[in-house]
Design a protein around this nucleic acid. Structure first.
Lengths: 245, 245
DNA sequence: CGGGGGTTTGATACTAATCAATAGATGTGG
DNA sequence: CCACATCTATTGATTAGTATCAAACCCCCG
C-alpha cells in the first residue's frame, strides 16, 4: 500500500523531474512556506531557467507576467532615467524572491551580473495558488516588509550619508548579506563592478574607487584582487556606516 | 425579527460607539477589505487617537506594539543618524497604513506635522485577526508592494536626480497623492515646512527655497502663500521630474 | 603579445552645502 | 489690536564635496 502510492510518484519524478522536491536552497526562500505534501503544486508552475552574465531578464515597463526566485548567482535590480542615468536599487542573491513591488508592469529591470539560475513562476498561477496556501502569502508579506526595511535604509543612505559612509555601509551590508555566519567572514567577493557599486550608492566610479583606495591607505580594508575585499577593521567600518565616523 | 436583531446593535453603538461602523474613510484604507459583517471584530481592537502637531507617536527602535491607520492630518515618517541628520522616507496622509516594514522594533519614527487622527491597532491582535481575514492579509500585501514601488522611486530620485528634478518630482507626486481627481487640482497645500521637504529630498532648506524661487521666476509655479503652491506648468514639471528636463 | 574592459589616479569644474544676514509669518501677552 | 518674540523662509557670499574630464595602469583573455 505504501509502496503502491510512492512508486508512481517516483516514476513521475524520473520522467519529469520535479524542480522543487530536491531543491537545496528551499529553506532559504519563500518556498519553505509550502509543505512537502503540497510541493508538487508549486513545482507544477515552476520553470528553472539559466541566464548568462549580462542577460536582462526583467525589463521595466514590460507586462509583469512572472515572479522569480534566484537559486544561484547575483542579479542587479535597477531603474533608469531616459538619459541613461542608472540607479541600482539592490543586488539579489540566492534565495531572493523577485516580483514584489510590481503592478501590472514591472517597475524595475533585472540583469544577471554573473551566470544566474532562477525559478520562474507564472504570476497569475502563483497568485491563484496563494488562496490555497495562506502560509505562503504570509511569507510573501513578511518578505515584502523586510524589503521595505531595506529600502528605507537605502533611502537614508542616499539622502543623508557621505561618500565614505555609503561605501562603508555597502561593504558592511554586502558582507552580512553574503556571509550567513556570525561573525561574518572578513573576506568578501564582489561580483559587481565599481560602476555598479557606484550606481547602487548614488556616486560615480571614480568616487567609489578613490574611497576604496583611501580605506586601503588607512588600513581598514585590503583588496587582494579587484573583486575581493578583506575587512580588516570591521568595527570601524560599522561605525562609519552608522554615521558616527 | 429584524428590529429585534438590530436594536441591540444600535444600543451597543450608543453605549460604546464602534469606531469602524460609520467610518467615512474606510473605503480609502485597508479596512475596506473587512466586510460589514465582520467589522465589529476590527472595531474591537481599534482605538481612535488624536495627536497634536509635533507629537512623535512612533519612535525608531521602540518595540513595535501597534499598527496605525491615518484618518486625518499628515504624518512624516523618518529615520535619523546619531548626529541629527534626518531623512524623511515619506509623508502619510488619510488612509495610509503605518507599520509595514517593521520587525520587532519600529525601523522608523512618525511625527504628526499637523493635528492628526489615527486608528491604533494592537499588532499582536491584528496579526491574529489576519488568520481569519485572508482578504485583509491580501490587502496588506498589496499595500506593502505599493510602498515598495514608491520606495524604489524615491531611491532613484535620491541616487540620481538633480535638485531641480527632485523638487519637481516632489511637487508632482504630492499633488497626485493629495488630489484624487484626474487631472489633479493645480493648487496644492503643503503642510510640511521647507526643512521637511529638504529632509525628504536629501537637500538643504536653502536649496529647496532657491529651487522654488527659480521655478517661480521661470513661471512654472506660483506661491500665493508659503504653504500653498499653484502648478502653472504641470507638463513641464512632469518632464523635469522624469529626468528629461 | 596585443587588445580591451575595468580600475586607479590626477586636474579641474560645478552643484549643492555651509555660513550669514534679512525678511516675512505666526503666535502671545499686554 | 498692536508690539514683541520666535520661528520659518528667502537671498547672498563663500566653501566643500563630489562629478567631470583626462590619462595611465592593470589584468584577463584571446
Amino acid at each position: 500500500m505504501l509502496a503502491r502510492t510512492i512508486r508512481p510518484m517516483l516514476l513521475a519524478v524520473a520522467s519529469a523531474p520535479e524542480p522543487c522536491a530536491d531543491c537545496d536552497i528551499r529553506q532559504k526562500s519563500v518556498c519553505s512556506a509550502v509543505s512537502d505534501r503540497d510541493l508538487h503544486r508549486l513545482a507544477s508552475i515552476t520553470l528553472v531557467k539559466d541566464y548568462p552574465k549580462g542577460k536582462i531578464f526583467i525589463e521595466e515597463g514590460e507586462p509583469a507576467t512572472d515572479f522569480f526566485n534566484v537559486t544561484s548567482g547575483t542579479v542587479k535590480l535597477f531603474k533608469m532615467l531616459p538619459d541613461g542615468r542608472q540607479q541600482i536599487t539592490g543586488f539579489a542573491t540566492v534565495g531572493h524572491f523577485l516580483g514584489l513591488g510590481v503592478a501590472d508592469t514591472y517597475t524595475f529591470s533585472a540583469e544577471a551580473i554573473e551566470p544566474v539560475t532562477v525559478c520562474r513562476f507564472s504570476r497569475s498561477k502563483l497568485t491563484k495558488l496563494l488562496d490555497d496556501f495562506p502560509a505562503l502569502e504570509k511569507r510573501l508579506l513578511e518578505t515584502a516588509c523586510n524589503e521595505l526595511v531595506m529600502a528605507n535604509n537605502q533611502i537614508l543612505m542616499l539622502g543623508r550619508k557621505t561618500a565614505r559612509e555609503r561605501v562603508a555601509s555597502f561593504l558592511v551590508s554586502w558582507s552580512e548579506s553574503t556571509s550567513p555566519c556570525d561573525p561574518p567572514a572578513a573576506r568578501l567577493h564582489l561580483p559587481m563592478t565599481r560602476g555598479e557599486i557606484a550606481d547602487h550608492l548614488g556616486l560615480t566610479i571614480e568616487t567609489v574607487s578613490r574611497t576604496f583606495s583611501r580605506f586601503r591607505a588607512e588600513g581598514r580594508i585590503r583588496t587582494p584582487t579587484t573583486t575581493d575585499v578583506v575587512l580588516i577593521d570591521r568595527p570601524w567600518l560599522e561605525h562609519v556606516a552608522a554615521g558616527e565616523g
